[in-house]
């Protein structure tokens, strides 16, 4: 088990630097930030002076070397637009994103598990049909469209909820609902189908033979066996949640990481984009590692394997 974790950690570090280098190069391909910073009436010499000041005149190889050295020392650089350390910008944005994403994701997963398990338990009932319908709806409608429609109906027409911002608890309702709406259905369907497989098995029959109450049969014996594939998908969903938040934050004018990333990308503010990608990568890799470790908790056979 310890060896397994060490191997996975090493893989994470390789993946991390891979992501770093690819982002670095992609950004350079996208264009020259000096051209955006300079006024149209600047002479070529003045633009060149900006490049030299920002260190953009050096070759990509050199820039990458300097950058990796910085990152290795924990320095994420300064924003090209405002002469502010990137770390303060992230420090402002990250808590806002977490405030939105953590409750949304947790709520989506709890709902997905409860609804999925109930749909499988009462298979083909009207309840199951409602769940199936919701699942199709949630997977078919694009998240950004749902968000805009929600704003249109509940904020503009009915005026029940604020349009944007994050000052009051009421501000959370629409963005959280939007994120739940597009992350829950896939998981719900997966939980339903794995539960159906498990409920068909002989050990479930055996649990009933023991005279156990139905809730123990389902929530103890069946659910734990149905956890493996949903856990894998949670790992795969998390990056999607971060990118999903980009759209949601943009629509609801939420000052989080997603909006920071979009603004920095349009401005070719390389250090900011790179820093956001770094933080996202660390979060995603870390969570995936935790998920891998949690398999061992779910399935004793993995725990006893000597890999």
């Amino acid at each position: 088990m310890v060896r397994f974790i060490i191997i996975r950690l090493l893989q994470c570090i390789v993946a991390f630097f891979g992501i770093l280098i690819i982002t670095f190069l992609l950004l350079r391909v996208s264009g020259d930030p000096a051209a955006l910073l300079a006024s149209p009436n600047f002479s070529p010499e003045q633009v060149q002076a900006i490049r030299v000041e920002l260190g953009l005149d050096k070759s990509w190889g050199e820039q990458l070397g300097i950058y990796l050295n910085q990152v290795a020392h924990g320095n994420l650089g300064e924003s090209l637009l405002q002469k502010k350390p990137v770390i303060t910008k992230i420090g402002d944005a990250l808590p806002n994103t977490l405030k939105l994403m953590v409750p949304s994701f947790v709520l989506a997963m709890i709902l997905a598990f409860i609804l999925g398990v109930l749909a499988a338990t009462y298979r083909d009932s009207w309840w199951d049909n409602i769940v199936k319908f919701l699942a199709v709806l949630g997977q078919a409608l694009p998240g950004f469209w749902v968000a805009i429609m929600a704003v249109l109906i509940f904020s503009v027409q009915l005026q029940w909820l604020p349009v944007a911002g994050m000052d009051t608890p009421a501000n959370y309702i629409l963005p959280v609902s939007t994120i739940v709406f597009f992350t829950m259905p896939g998981m719900m369907r997966l939980v339903r189908s794995t539960m159906l497989d498990v409920l068909d098995s002989e050990y479930i029959k055996m649990a009933r033979i023991k005279g156990l109450p139905e809730r123990t049969v389902i929530w103890k014996h069946a659910l734990r066996n149905a956890l493996i594939s949903p856990l894998t998908i949670i790992g795969m969903l998390l990056p999607g949640v971060v990118t999903g938040a980009v759209i949601t934050e943009q629509i609801f004018n939420w000052p989080g990481m997603g909006r920071l990333l979009v603004e920095a990308t349009f401005a070719r503010d390389f250090p900011v984009v790179q820093a956001v990608v770094i933080i996202t990568a660390i979060l995603v890799l870390g969570i995936n590692l935790l998920i891998d470790i949690s398999y061992a908790w779910v399935d004793p056979q993995i725990r006893f394997q000597r890999t």
């Binding site: 098995s201 002989e202 050990y203 029959k205 055996m206 033979i209 066996n225 399935d299 056979q301």
Partner: peptide
């Protein structure tokens, strides 16, 4: 039940 391989809960 008939099949001992699947009658016990693996976890």
């Amino acid at each position: 039940l008939q099949d001992p391989m699947t009658s016990l809960n693996p976890v």
